[in-house]
């Protein structure tokens, strides 16, 4: 005889989880419930989700290809044919914004996947080991932090050559130092805890302690920070695009679109305005989501 199958929701709220997977799923479920309880976070989450879906289904959502030119129909205002009008080459702006979501998401994901782990590893190692290692790692971090992000990114792009991938690399190089600082601050506190002393007594190596015990506790604040930083990253990417140092034409990068549209701003305001609105909405979405994540993931809340 098998037990009557419990519903998924019961499984998620059972008092005594029967496996590690269930225990972790329950933690995530609780965090998701807490996240969804805050309307602003929900809006932020929906914006980010919309960005994801837009990027994923871009070809389905649009009639025109982003680079299809229709010179007979250039600089056309919004109409039933072209929802948000066309630009100076007669390309459909709606289509370009939708496809531009792919570029934005690509930048955001690559930066998050490189800067966050790098910053986390450097910061947690510096904070846990202390001493000379910490001094060296943190002075390097300080050097990066001493320059304004956009200026530093500009310098890197100038050195690496213009292009989307060098823009991403430049942004990633400017994005890790704040992460490292946060991870170090967390690690400094964590290394004093008794549970770290306990694993040291068990004979765990420094690397094991850092990556299995210290890093998981730094992750929440790093996630919060990188989510909040996303807005800035998108703006820098757009800024580089605007200056012609990021994605190259004819790629439908939002910043580059604003830059091109600038020439027509007085008469054909929509060319620059709509991609600008897209940048604004997506940046705000990440900010709202980051604020909500901070409330839910703050490790100081979770330890007690």
């Amino acid at each position: 005889m098998t037990e009557p199958t419990a519903t998924f929701r019961e499984w998620l709220s059972a008092a005594d989880p029967a496996s590690r997977a269930q225990a972790q799923a329950q933690e995530i479920y609780r965090a998701a419930l807490a996240l969804a309880a805050n309307p602003l976070t929900l809006i932020g989450g929906l914006i980010v989700l919309a960005l994801l879906l837009t990027a994923l289904f871009a070809p389905v959502l649009t009639i025109y290809a982003p680079n299809d030119q229709d010179l007979a129909n250039r600089l056309a205002p919004s109409s039933s044919l072209h929802l948000l009008g066309t630009d100076e080459l007669g390309r459909d702006i709606f289509s370009r914004i939708v496809h531009g979501a792919r570029l934005t998401l690509y930048i955001v994901i690559v930066v998050a996947l490189t800067a966050a782990p790098a910053g986390l590893a450097i910061g947690a190692t510096a904070g846990y080991l202390g001493g000379v290692t910490e001094t060296i790692l943190m002075r390097i971090t300080d050097i990066f932090l001493a320059f304004p992000k956009l200026i530093l990114a500009l310098a890197f792009v100038a050195a690496l050559g213009a292009g989307l991938n060098s823009a991403i690399l430049a942004i990633a190089l400017t994005a890790w130092p704040p992460i490292a600082r946060i991870a170090r601050a967390e690690a400094l506190v964590i290394r004093q805890s008794d549970f770290i002393a306990a694993v040291r007594l068990m004979g765990a190596s420094d690397a094991r302690i850092i990556f299995r015990h210290v890093v998981p506790l730094c992750v929440p604040s790093v996630i919060v920070r990188i989510t909040l930083d996303m807005a800035g990253i998108i703006l820098i990417a757009a800024g580089l695009g605007f200056l012609g140092l990021g994605a190259q034409p004819p790629a439908p990068e939002w910043g580059a679109m604003v830059s091109k549209g600038r020439e027509f701003l007085t008469d054909q305001w929509w060319i620059a305005t709509y991609p600008g609105i897209a940048i604004f909405i997506v940046s705000m979405g990440f900010n709202l989501l980051g604020d909500g994540l901070r409330d839910v993931l703050d490790p100081r809340e979770a330890t007690r």
Binding site: V199, M202, H213, P299
Partner: peptide
């Protein structure tokens, strides 16, 4: 091995009982 004073601080807040006992 050692048993510490504060039972809040001596267990890793993000590890289950199973993980804490399996680690050693």
């Amino acid at each position: 091995q050692m048993v510490f004073q504060d039972p809040f601080g001596s267990l890793h807040p993000r590890q289950t009982v199973d993980q804490a006992l399996r680690e050693p």
